[in-house]
């Protein structure tokens, strides 16, 4: 774990300035993305997992913007680029985005351009980032389409996204995310809209390509089954903060944060009991009504009365590299500074 990570997020705050008020989508997110491994970011809707991915790429939609914190990108262990210091449309940022950090979105139909053929979209990306000739870009495009399992790729270059099925479109999206051999692939719920059978094929593919290219993957999902299948490390987020970070075995076998534990208990498992599921009480609070103290305390089954309502726990590190933000593990500061 002493190796320099690929990305370090330090106290990242991304806020959305809406007419009704400020939505603190990310409220001090700190974690690192190690090289060549798969990190899953999980959490329920509104926890900020997608905004985290978009912040790294500097593609947060207005009225959102990064207001505080740093995103340190280490292309090599000895180099450091602070992404938050770059302008979103600067040349350097555009080189990183799509070139060194690839991305796959949830809905391929809205993320692929509708009026350009898939061949054009991929080969243009390769040409921009790799500066190769048109013919070479075309060859690489065919190679990538074949690699992601699209049959007869030469004939598909001229196809438009609407002519492809959902699974095929998602493969095109993956080819687009990988075609510049990025150091990091950010995949935001890439299989959520797909059938389980197609999902299984896509997950196999991502895993296979990752090993082959020694690429880091940041996989954003809410599906704990998917996490168990592909993650090396897991970051659990709740209301714009990291609740827990640990290796995948620890997360599933010995989770520390009450939220992680509650999530694990609430999912139905094949062959499990048919007793009522242990649901988490209440629901994710509205972003304008963020609870005081630990933001999970109103729903927490292990809440410590008189403490969790007022004390905001720090992210505490354990010997195995895991991190937990919970008063059960000591270490706290007063909420209001």
């Amino acid at each position: 774990m002493s190796e320099t990570p690929l990305i370090e997020l330090e106290g990242l705050r991304t806020h959305f300035f809406t007419d009704e008020g400020v939505v603190k989508a990310l409220d001090g997110v700190t974690f690192s993305v190690p090289r060549g491994r798969t990190l899953c970011v999980v959490g329920e809707s509104g926890c900020g997992k997608s905004v985290t991915g978009r912040s790294i790429l500097q593609i947060v939609d207005r009225p959102g913007r990064i207001v505080e914190g740093r995103i340190l990108y280490h292309p090599t262990p000895h180099e450091t680029i602070d992404i938050t210091a770059l302008r979103p449309m600067s040349r350097q940022m555009r080189t990183i985005r799509g070139g060194e950090i690839g991305m796959i979105f949830q809905e391929p139909m809205t993320s692929l351009g509708p009026i350009q053929t898939i061949g054009k979209q991929i080969s243009e990306t390769i040409r921009i980032h790799k500066g190769v000739s048109k013919a070479e870009a075309r060859n690489q495009t065919i190679e990538w389409l074949a690699r992601v399992g699209i049959p007869r790729p030469e004939t598909r270059l001229g196809a438009y996204p609407f002519e492809l099925s959902g699974g095929m479109r998602q493969r095109v999206m993956i080819a687009l995310g990988l075609c510049c051999r990025p150091k990091l692939l950010i995949a935001d719920e890439p299989t959520t809209a797909l059938d389980v059978t197609t999902q299984a094929v896509i997950l196999d593919l991502i895993r296979e390509l990752q090993e082959e290219m020694d690429m880091a993957v940041m996989f954003i999902t809410h599906d704990l089954g998917v996490v168990a299948q592909i993650a090396d490390d897991v970051v659990v987020m709740y209301l714009g903060r990291v609740a827990e970070r640990a290796g995948v075995e620890t997360i599933f076998d010995a989770p520390r944060h009450p939220y992680t534990r509650a999530l694990m208990r609430s999912i139905p498992r094949l062959g499990g009991s048919r007793e009522p599921l242990e649901a988490i009480r209440g629901m994710v609070p509205h972003p304008f009504r963020r609870p005081s103290g630990c933001s999970f305390h109103p729903r927490c089954p292990e809440v410590i009365a008189g403490r969790c309502e007022s004390l905001d726990p720090d992210l505490r590190e354990f010997g195995d590299g895991s991190q937990v933000r919970c008063l059960l593990y000591g270490s706290q500061t007063e909420a209001q500074q």
């Binding site: 299984a200 997950l203 599906d223 996490v227 168990a228 599933f252």
Partner: peptide, 18 residues
């Protein structure tokens, strides 16, 4: 194809992909 929420079952079913 169902991803089971247990890291120990990882890849156990990869042989039967459709």
């Amino acid at each position: 194809a169902v991803p089971q929420p247990d890291p120990r079952l990882r890849g156990a079913s990869a042989r039967r992909r459709l």
